[in-house]
Nucleic acid binder design. Structure first.
Length: 498
RNA sequence: GGGGCUAUGGUGUAACUUGGUAUCACUUAUGGUUUGGGACCAUACAAUCGGGGUUCAAAUCCUCGUAGCCCCA
């Protein structure tokens, strides 16, 4: 054994001796090593676990509940936009991919192929996204201007053969998402849809997941393979890295032409329609966990949490029955919040507090013999840990009130971090110092691939996030690119990213 | 894409250098005493990642595979 190995082993030993091994808890602090903190939390809070095949994971019930909350919220939005759910096959013939050259080129490196079967001599790939297979159907479904707009969505899994390091929820070879695809008669309608859905994603993050995002257009370098323009929502995490949390693409007419989708207009002429697609994935789960979790474990935003309350009765033999009866009464009174009544005898109240905090339940109600006489409970919010006494008859009012306050507090904290992280700079030196301080750097930018490549290379990882929509994304007259000095074409955010 | 490290009950680990009965704790189960911020006693269940090799003998050495983590591009 080499010295180096011995040292590693000794370190491991020392660490394990100094740690509390029976702990549910985490061995690192979020502020010290967020990456390790995240891995431990996702596993120990039983959101997910590694699967036998590389880069894949099992979503456990506690994690899937979060996905269900996202689905429940967003499926309603989809329907409000008159988008219908469908299901398209997992297998896509190779020739379908090849019809759109940019798309094929962009996705080839991460396609997974079915090895032992081919149909009619043609290979089948597992879908990395469904433009190709959907457009094939669209070519039959779209004939007349009366068939438009055609608006469909699917909730499904997709496969992208990642070669980079994979992370639970954040980057994996298979993941769950929703992909909406709309076909419009005009460019204007298509554009509007692309931006509308981007806005819906923003609202989803703010209203359900309780964090802010930057909405904007991706650079040429970062846009979707085959798109005219890609827009994204970008979340900025506490460790100073951005993460793309959702995308909306204006796919223009490329796929339409490639798959021969056309319609007869009111003018009796044949026209090529316009095409959009937009998606969010289980990556949002990871983003939410990193955004709100703390050193005590998971923090579920109130609107995401299925069980919004845990009731911990304090049980002594003499008063046991009376306390349990009252706890049960409270549980029924607050049934709409799906309270958990933790009446286990085998662990102490203190254990329960720590356990439910770790699992992120938003509110805790403690009730013991002393409270019984006073007609009150001890009431604790997960995000701030403050204890207060609440009269039992006031609970029905206080619970929804505190859930809303907690949502707002989580959002405000995330918003404050985002606002404090944005640094506007005009030259390379200022850029580098802001970037090294893990800021979200706002610059005038030429928007060119070569310039962006150079920046990424020079900094060892700075990438453009997006260009804000509207006036905010427009540089002042005469503004120059912060790096190359050519005339700036846009205002862009740069940062480290996941 | 290149390099390094790791894999032992459900969990965290010891034993590996120098081959020989697999350690300890937690968890779990049962019984009892407990319970307002991580209670305790007793007993019991439970493990060497997969394939191949070396050897009288492999957790330990060699080899291939699989998976995870880290560093560089």
């Amino acid at each position: 054994m080499t010295d180096e190995n011995k040292n590693k082993k000794n370190n491991k030993k020392n660490n394990s001796n100094s740690e509390d091994q029976n702990s549910l808890g985490l061995t690192v602090k979020k502020s010290e090593d967020m990456s390790e903190w995240y891995s431990q939390l996702v596993l120990k809070a039983e959101l997910a676990e590694h699967a036998p095949s590389k880069g894949c994971y099992v979503i456990r019930p506690r994690g899937y509940k979060i996905w269900e909350a996202i689905q429940k919220y967003f499926d309603k939005i989809i329907k409000q936009h008159n988008v219908d759910n469908t299901y398209f096959p997992l297998f896509i013939p190779e020739s379908f991919f090849q019809k759109e050259a940019d798309h094929f080129e962009g996705f080839t490196p991460e396609l997974a192929w079915v090895a032992n079967k081919d149909e009619g001599g043609e290979r089948l790939a597992l879908r990395p996204t469904s433009e190709a297979v959907m457009c094939d159907s669209f070519s039959r479904w779209v004939r007349s201007w009366r068939d438009l707009p055609l608006k469909i969505n699917q909730w499904c899994n997709i496969v992208r053969w990642e070669t980079k390091a994979t992370r639970l929820f954040l980057r994996s070879r298979e993941f769950l998402w929703q992909e909406g695809h709309c076909v419009y008669a005009t460019e204007e309608e298509c554009n509007l849809d692309v931006l509308d859905m981007l806005e819906e994603y923003k609202i989803l993050c703010e209203e359900l997941l309780a964090f802010p995002v930057l909405t904007g257009r991706k650079s040429e370098k970062e846009k979707f393979a085959g798109a005219l323009a890609t827009y994204s929502i970008e979340a900025f995490l506490p460790d100073g890295k951005a993460i793309q949390a959702g995308t909306s693409h204006n796919l223009g007419q490329g796929f339409m032409k490639a798959f021969d989708v056309s319609f007869l207009g009111q003018d009796g002429q044949k026209h090529t329609p316009w095409h959009s697609s937009w998606g969010i994935s289980t990556r949002l789960i990871g983003t939410m966990v990193m955004m709100h979790g703390d050193d005590k474990g998971l923090v579920l935003p109130p609107r995401v949490a299925f069980n919004k309350i845990v009731i911990v009765p304090i049980l002594f033999d003499k008063t046991r029955e009376a306390v349990l009866n009252k706890a049960d009464e409270i549980k029924n009174m607050l049934a709409e919040f799906h309270p958990i009544l933790d009446d286990r005898d085998e662990v102490t109240p203190g254990w329960k507090y720590n356990e439910w905090e770790f699992k992120g339940v938003p509110l805790r109600i403690e009730i013991g013999p002393r409270d019984l006489d006073a007609g009150q409970v001890v009431f604790v919010r997960r995000d701030n840990g403050e204890k207060q006494f609440i009269k039992i008859e006031d609970l029905k009012e206080v619970v929804p009130e505190q859930l809303e306050l907690m949502h707002q507090a989580l959002f405000d904290k995330a918003k404050l971090h985002l606002d404090e992280s944005i640094f506007e700079v005009n030259d390379w030196d200022a850029f580098m110092s802001a970037y090294e301080a893990k800021k979200l750097v706002k610059v005038n930018f030429c928007g060119e691939d070569e310039c962006e490549d150079w920046i990424k290379d020079k900094t060892g990882g700075a990438s453009s996030r997006n260009v804000p929509n509207g006036d905010e994304g427009m540089p002042a007259e005469g503004a120059k690119c912060f790096h190359c000095g050519k005339p700036a074409t846009c205002v862009t955010f740069f940062s480290r990213s996941y």
